[in-house]
Measured scan of single mutants.
Amino acid sequence: EADPRLIESLSQMLSMGFSDEGGWLTRLLQTKNYDIGAALDTIQY
C-alpha cells in the first residue's frame, strides 16, 4: 500500500499540473522524503 505522505504530496503536485508518467514524480518525491518544496527545487534546476 502506498505511503499516505506520498499520496498527499503526489496529488498536490498533480493538481499543480505535473504528471507522473512513468512514475518519475513518485520516485522523486520518495527521494525527497515527500517534500514538495525540495522536489520543485530539483525540477527547477
Rank of each mutant, 00 (worst) to 15 (best):
Ala38Thr: 07
Leu40Met: 09
Gln44Ile: 13
Gly23Gln: 07
Thr42Asn: 08
Gln44Ala: 11
Leu6Thr: 03
Phe18Gln: 01
Asp20Asn: 13
Ser11Leu: 12
Thr42Ile: 12
Leu14Cys: 07
Gly22His: 08
Glu21Gln: 10
Gln30Leu: 13
Pro4Cys: 09
Asp3Glu: 09
Leu14Asn: 06
Phe18Lys: 01
Gln12Val: 14
Trp24Tyr: 07
Tyr45Lys: 15
Arg27Met: 09
Asp41Tyr: 14
Asp35Glu: 08
Leu29Lys: 00
Leu25His: 00
Thr31Arg: 15
Glu1Pro: 13
Ser19Phe: 08
Ile7Gln: 14
Leu10Met: 08
Ser19Gln: 10
Arg27Gly: 05
Ser11Met: 11
Ile7Ser: 10
Leu40Glu: 02
Arg27Ala: 10
Ala2Ile: 13
Ile43His: 02
Leu25Asn: 00
Pro4Ala: 12
Asp41Ala: 15
Leu14Arg: 10
Thr26Glu: 04
Gln30Phe: 09
Ser15Asn: 12
Leu40Phe: 06
Arg5Lys: 10
Lys32Met: 13
Leu28Met: 04
Asp35Gln: 06
Thr31Leu: 15
Asn33Asp: 09
Gln44Glu: 12
Ile36Tyr: 04
Gly22Leu: 07
Tyr34His: 04
Ile36Trp: 07
Asp3Gln: 05
Asp20Phe: 03
Gly17Val: 02
Asn33Gln: 10
Asp35Pro: 01
Leu28Glu: 00
Ala38Ile: 08
Thr42Pro: 01
Tyr34Glu: 01
Met13Ser: 01
Asp20Glu: 03
Thr31His: 13
Gly23Arg: 04
Thr31Glu: 14
Glu21Gly: 07
Ser19His: 12
Ile7Arg: 12
Ser19Ala: 09
Leu10Gly: 01
Gly17Leu: 04
Ile7Ala: 12
Leu6Trp: 05
Arg27Asn: 08
Leu29Glu: 01
Gly22Tyr: 08
Tyr45Ser: 15
Ala39Lys: 01
Asp20Ala: 03
Thr42Arg: 07
Gly17Lys: 03
Ile43Trp: 05
Gly23Phe: 08
Asp20Gly: 02
Thr42Gly: 07
Gln12Asp: 05
Gln12His: 10
Leu40Cys: 06
Ser9Asn: 04
Ser15Ile: 11
Tyr45Asn: 15
Asp20Gln: 03
Leu40Thr: 04
Ser11Gly: 12
Asp35Met: 05
Met16Ser: 03
Glu21Lys: 10
Met13Lys: 00
Arg5Trp: 06
Gln44Cys: 14
Gly37Ser: 14
Glu8Phe: 13
Thr26Asp: 02
Leu6Val: 05
Leu10Pro: 00
Ala39Ile: 08
Glu1Val: 13
Met13Trp: 03
Leu29Arg: 00
Asp35Ser: 10
Leu14Val: 09
Glu8Lys: 14
Thr31Trp: 14
Thr26Leu: 05
Met16Gly: 02
Glu8Trp: 14
Leu28Ala: 02
Leu28Thr: 02
Pro4Ser: 11
Gly17Arg: 01
Arg27Pro: 01
Ala39Ser: 06
Gln44Leu: 15
Leu10Trp: 03
Lys32Phe: 10
Thr42His: 15
Leu40Lys: 04
Met13Leu: 10
Glu8Pro: 08
Arg5Glu: 07
Ala39Asp: 01
Tyr34Ser: 03
Trp24Ala: 05
Gly22Phe: 08
Gly17Ala: 02
Ala39Met: 04
Tyr34Trp: 05
Trp24Lys: 04
Glu8Cys: 10
Gly23Met: 07
Met16Pro: 00
Ser15Tyr: 08
Ser11Pro: 02
Glu1Cys: 10
Ala38Asn: 06
Glu21Leu: 09
Leu14Gln: 08
Glu21Ser: 10
Gly22Ala: 07
Ser11Glu: 12
Glu8Arg: 10
Leu14Phe: 14
Leu10Gln: 01
Lys32Pro: 01
Ile36Gln: 03
Ser11Arg: 15
Gly23Lys: 07
Ala38Lys: 11
Ser11Ile: 11
Asp41Val: 13
Lys32Asp: 02
Glu21Cys: 13
Gly37Cys: 12
Pro4Ile: 11
Ala39Trp: 04
Gln12Phe: 15
Ile43Phe: 05
Ser9Thr: 11
Gly17Pro: 01
Ser15Ala: 13
Ile43Gln: 02
Thr31Ile: 15
Leu29Cys: 02
Thr31Val: 12
Ala39Thr: 13
Leu29Asn: 00
Asp35His: 07
Arg5Tyr: 07
Asp41Arg: 15
Ala2His: 11
Leu6Gln: 04
Leu10Asp: 00
Leu29Thr: 00
Gly22Trp: 06
Asp41Pro: 02
Gly23Tyr: 07
Met13Glu: 00
Gly17Met: 03
Phe18Arg: 00
Trp24Thr: 04
Gly17Glu: 01
Gly23Thr: 03
Ser19Glu: 10
Ala2Ser: 12
Glu21Met: 09
Gly22Cys: 13
Gly23Ala: 05
Leu40Ile: 11
Asp41Phe: 15
Phe18Pro: 00
Asn33Cys: 10
Leu29Trp: 02
Lys32Ala: 09
Leu14Thr: 08
